[in-house]
Design a protein around this nucleic acid. Structure first.
Lengths: 362, 362
DNA sequence: ATCCATATTTATAACGTTTCAAATACGAGT
DNA sequence: ACTCGTATTTGAAACGTTATAAATATGGAT
């Protein structure tokens, strides 16, 4: 092997790289590899590799020399090669459901995850779910092709198939939302029970006596949480609450609008409605205004963006901080990948900020 | 090399895969590779590879045999290896600016891109910009590490450095937004000039005589488009429009709220405002309501989600279809990757739907 | 039978990394 | 000088794929 160890060899390399970049011929600008670095420093490829990996077996002196050269010629490892060799992808996959990409649900969560991953070697990759693919296939695909080192999924179901598959495969993941599976697994969840309960209390405090709630689609775990919280909140004040039918959080704005309009027509409009989403709240409000009943129906909504504060007249809202959830998920997932036991990797986000907690008994 | 060509060898493989998955020992479930397929069919690895690649040099008979076996044992190629060998990543990168991830700008675009990529071998990877990294570094990173085969960037500047770099490197990309660079490059853009002009017309038609507009940050190309369109629209009606100062589309809701409140205090509130974004429109409206001037200031907003239709009282809005933009970008980018000449790869999205076009001369 | 052109198949060498086991260098102790 | 233990470096193999060039099979014409 040709060995260049003269001190000015590195200078020459840098010059040539520059020249070839500027040159009229636009010579194929060769990407530096470990071999480049090896011949430049006069070391073996293996040594260079280990030096860059901070292997303690490498003399501090050579390590510095290698690091310096790497920096100077702008070396960066080929991820495909690393991945092939080690089987690690350095990728965290965020799997988005079709519905989520529309309303931007994932969007603010992304910021949080990104933050948690900063400084690590991990990249966040967002995998929007193709509409023609079930969420299950999406996860299967990640597993089969080893597209990531860890997965973040959301909108869990009590007996979530994706989670069963991930658990069975021993693949690191975290979910936004709980399940009812026996095996513990990492999760971050928002206290939707607490949210719905607090929301019911607020409605009642504002005078509602026949409050209603727009439910989440029944298949999701948090649908039950919402229902429980809402009914409990109502019961605690001796009021009977009613979960609206035929529509859910995920119904289109038009559908919700139509349903509320129909309730108004039949004179069955509740005098207060808990809306667990921004879009649904706005649709309800629009229908109330258009039906001339805006003053007869109090609203409490769950907001996930700060747009909620800008609505006039104000709609009472309780904020779910998805960015924080994202950051927590990122951090916990990293620990899951590192092998921490799953039964400690969870976080339940309180429905109301510190100090505003609802007391359990009045 | 050991060769298994007995017809029932495949059956045995399938059984063993099943057994090892179900087995108590949970044996390391080996992922099938080309080698597996080769020994199963009794062919050479190279033959298998080419058969799967539909190489015409392979006998139709063997091709079918290989395909069948591959399907049966659930073979799927290792993307890392393919990538290392071919240099192709099969990835399209969508680079999001920090601001975009907050307001969900990218979110609806993602659906469109995904749609355009469906059925191809490409995956969409969303790369949120780390706040501590300039957009430029983001692109540099993709180039250096060859993280994708094509890039989608948005929010262009007239002399966009990222685009210059991409052009110089001959790297396939498309931008959402135009530049003023001499070299043509693929882009999709919304006719912001047309939008602002139509918006001005609508304000004036609604009675405004001193209309204003919230500008986009001056560095972006479309800031100029908005300005031109707005001023032209005003001039066409013999009215003098005024671009608001100290705030932009990207200012926080609080800042915009404060600025409008201050205008009200100084009694300088325009009698109509063009808001090129949903959040800014809601902030303006909130400030007007809170300042008791809601009826004195007409609004026209640009909306990118259908939430706009739900605001009560209604705010006049013009819809920019980001999903369509995303789909166009995806398709054009694929053509750019295929080598189509750049000067034909562009699309200017009309500001108003067919039939609602503004006539150029009144 | 023999030869040649064509149709198929195959061995081999990469791609850039990491890791294992083996080799070498370096001192200290004799 | 010699041995030995430790510190450091290294060669070679492997990860799964594709591309090149060479090898082999096939079949028709002689």
């Amino acid at each position: 092997m040709q060995v260049f160890s003269q001190p000015d060899e590195l200078e020459r390399y840098k010059y040539e790289a520059f020249a070839s970049r500027e040159g009229a011929i636009m010579a194929r600008e060769e990407r530096p590899t470990l071999r480049t670095l090896a011949s430049l420093t006069g070391l073996a490829v293996a040594t260079v590799s280990r030096a860059l990996a901070d292997d303690p077996q490498i003399a501090p002196d050579t390590r510095n020399r290698v690091m310096k050269a790497a920096r100077e010629i702008g070396y960066s490892p080929d991820r495909a090669a690393q991945r092939l060799r080690t089987g690690r992808t350095n990728v965290i996959a965020l799997v988005l459901n079709p519905h989520e990409e529309i309303i931007g649900y994932g969007s603010s969560m992304i910021g949080g995850i990104t933050k948690a991953l900063r400084g690590t070697s991990y990249h966040l990759v967002v995998m929007p779910n193709f509409a023609d693919r079930s969420p299950m296939e999406q996860v299967e695909n990640i597993l089969r092709n080893k597209l990531a080192d860890g997965v973040i999924i959301s909108r869990t179901e009590p007996a979530d198939l994706r989670i069963r598959l991930l658990l069975e495969s021993g693949f690191p993941f975290i979910s936004h939302g709980r399940t009812e599976l026996a095996t513990p697994h990492p999760f971050v969840d928002y206290d939707n029970t607490g949210f719905a309960r607090a929301a019911a209390h607020r409605l009642i405090a504002a005078g509602a006596r026949r409050p209603g709630m727009i439910p989440a689609p029944a298949r999701f775990t948090f649908a039950q949480h919402l229902r429980t919280g809402f009914l409990r909140g109502c019961a605690e004040s001796g009021v009977s609450g009613q979960v609206l039918e035929d529509i859910t959080l995920d119904s289109s704005a038009d559908t919700i609008y139509a349903a509320i309009t129909s309730l108004i027509a039949r004179d069955e409009l509740p005098d207060g409605i808990v809306c667990p989403g921004e879009t649904s709240a706005m649709a309800v409000y629009a229908a109330c205004v258009d039906g001339g009943r805006a003053d007869d129906c109090k609203l409490v909504m769950k907001s996930t963006s700060h747009v909620a504060d800008l609505i006039r007249p104000r709609i009472d809202s309780i904020f779910e901080d998805l960015t924080e959830a994202g950051e927590r998920m990122g951090k916990l997932l990293l620990r899951a990948i590192a092998g921490d036991p799953a039964d400690q990797l969870f976080y339940l986000q309180p429905a109301l900020p510190e100090g505003q907690q609802l007391l359990t008994e009045a």
